[in-house]
Amino acid sequence: LVSKIMAPVTSDLLDHTTDDHGTWCEVVGRSMEVMSHLSGAQGETGAKLRHEISSCTEAIRTLSRILGCNKCKEEMRQRAIWILTRLYTDTIGISGSFEYSCCGEDFVRMLVNIFTQDNEYSSSIRGYAGEALSNICFLGGISDATLIIQTSGDVINSLTQVLLHEENETCRQASAEILECLCTHYTKDDEYLHKLKKAILKVIGKILCCGDGTHNGEDIESQCDGTQENNEPNKDAQGFQVETLSTMSSNLLSSLLCLCGTVYNTSSVIDLRPQLDASSFLNNLRDMVVKRSGPTVENLSVCKAAGNMVISMLKYYSGGFFKEDNFGSLIEVLSSASKKMLDLDYSMVCSS
C-alpha cells in the first residue's frame, strides 16, 4: 500500500516543461500529503514506514527536486522539507539507510543554501528550511555540525547576517538556534570554531550592547566595533535599524541569550576576549528584565536564559567582566523578578 501511495512521487509525474507542472501535479501533492502523515507516525510502525520511504531512491530524488524547484507550489516544497527532515533525523538514530539512499548530505547542504540565500527563495520557504536545519542540528552531533559549517560559501557569516538583519522572525529564531547547536556540537579546535564564536559574540554585542533604538545601524556599528568591515553587506548605511530588546519577541530574545551563554559555556579551547561593553550590556539587560518581570511563562523563560548567561560569563571571566556597579543593579532586578515569578516557577518545575 505504501508503494502505491508513493507511486505518483516515485514515478515523478510532474511535467517539468510547464510552469504549473501539468495535470498530475495535484495527484503528486496528495501523494506527498499522505507520505508526510506516514513519515510522522509514532512507534515501531512509524520507524518501519520511514525506513520503507527512505529506501525508495526515486521518491527521495523527486522530493529533493521539488524542494529545489522554484515553479513548484510552496505547500509542496514545505511538505518535501518536512518529509525529508523526518526521514533524515530518524535514520540518524535507527538505521542510517537514508545516507545510502542518495542524498542525506546533499539534503542538508540544500537546506543551508535555501536558508542563507535571501534573494533566491521566499522568506517562508527559508523559514521552513531554517527550522528543519535547527531540528537536524539539535538532534545530530559533530558530523551534522561539520557538514553545515563547511558547506560551500561563508555559512557562518550568512547565519549571523540572518540573525542581525532578517525581517522574518522565524528565520532569525532558527539562525540563533542553529548557531547555538553549532557551538555545542562543533568541538574541533580549528579556524571554523574560532570564526564561529567570534562572529556570534560580535552579533550579540551589536544587539545586546547598542540596541537602544536611538541610533541607526551605522552608528551602532561604529560604536560597537570601532571599525566597519568591508565584506559586510552595507544594509546599515541605508538606515537599517538593529531591533531593540524591547520590541523583540520573548522566544527570539530567549534564543539570543541562550546562544550567548552557550558560547561562553563551550569555550574551553578558545580565548574569548571581552567583546562587549560591560556597562551598556548590563544596563540593557537590567532594563530588559525590568520590562519582563511580570509572571508569565515567556518572561520566566527570558529571565532564566539571562540568569544562565550571566552565570556562564561569570565562570568564564572569573567575575572579571562584571566588576562594574551595574552588575549589582542587574542582580537586584533579577532577584525581584524571581520572587514575583516564584509560584509560576515552582509549578513549572513540578509539572515538568
Partner: peptide
Amino acid sequence: RTLLSLVREAKELHAMA
C-alpha cells in the same frame, strides 16, 4: 532549575570573584 537558584548562584560567583 528555578530562577531563584540561578540568581543565588550568580550572587555567589560574583562574591567569590
